[in-house]
Amino acid sequence: MIVVDFVVYLFTVLPDLLPIILGLATPLALGALCGVINERAGVVNIGIEGIMLWSAFNGYLAGFALHDTIGAGPSLALGIATAVLTGAVLGLLHAWLTVTVRADQIIAGTMMNIAAFGITGYLNRLIITPSGRGGAGVLGVLHLPPEVIGLPAVGPIIRMFFEQGPIAMSVVFFVIAIQLLLFRSRWGLRTRAVGEHPKAADTLGIDVFKQRYLNVVLGCAFAGLAGAYLTLESTGSFQNGMTGGRGFIALAAMIFGRWTPVGAFLGALMFGTATALGVVVNIRVPEGDLGQILKSIPTFWYAALPYLVTIVILAGVVGRSIPPAADGVPYEKEGRA
């Protein structure tokens, strides 16, 4: 009975939640794309969290600094560009550490996370807080005519994908594009070869190092875009540590999606749904027994929902996922045969 009530409740709130879910899923999906592009080429990147945070800060800083001189629109565009570039540059650092120097990939990523947290926190206090000025503004959301929103069945779906700011709207495009490229293009074939059996690729004249550099930098640019979403599209401000573990949840989404862009996107949507539900049950409390039960659960459990889902997924409830065979293994040309 309670279960039926709950399902009914889900269907009543879900149409309104859909746009929020995609918004919540956006940084996760972009982060997961970063993970897929990196790990498919054989480089583990647990520094996505840090890259996202640092890019969020730099993007915000650019938008904020130029807001008064060049106006809201151009400054936001510049902010996005700055964030993406920050991601790419940090990706270059990660690639250098993991591909050239062959440092431990987990430690390189951890270093990135710690450094990003500390440096952005420091600079935030040094530059942004003392200025006492307002934010950089927020990227606008596309407003759809009521007739479209009102369409039965498809209305909520259209809202989900199009009543969004530019970054959230672009996610679906990126996911489909990377999915196609990964499995149908030369770049994708080489990426998968380098991540599975780099030596085989090497004997065919493919430059394993170059391919890995390219993928780490490209992937991290997506993490940078995720950062831009947080400060320039979602909140319009920067707070210390505002990524709040999204970089790690993105990795869980990547694993859930078995290292495919579309799968990772579905994983991100699932986490987005968990987060959105955790919020909505406290705002739109259902009637009757169900409401009583849901209300009796302490709110922090709802806040913890996406993290709990992460743990369940990483514990392998969704079935064992097999990463690319050379994932996390530095490639070394052998000197002696």
């Binding site: 149908r184 293009s185 030369r186 074939l189 599975e196 690729a201 493919i206």
Partner: peptide, 24 residues
């Protein structure tokens, strides 16, 4: 020097890919 999860065709053309537009 074969990549186990790729197909025969993908393994053979790897490095000297036959393309049609941007795709293999």
């Amino acid at each position: 020097m074969l990549v186990p999860v790729l197909t025969v065709a993908e393994n053979v053309i790897l490095g000297q890919e036959l393309l049609r537009g941007p795709f293999l």
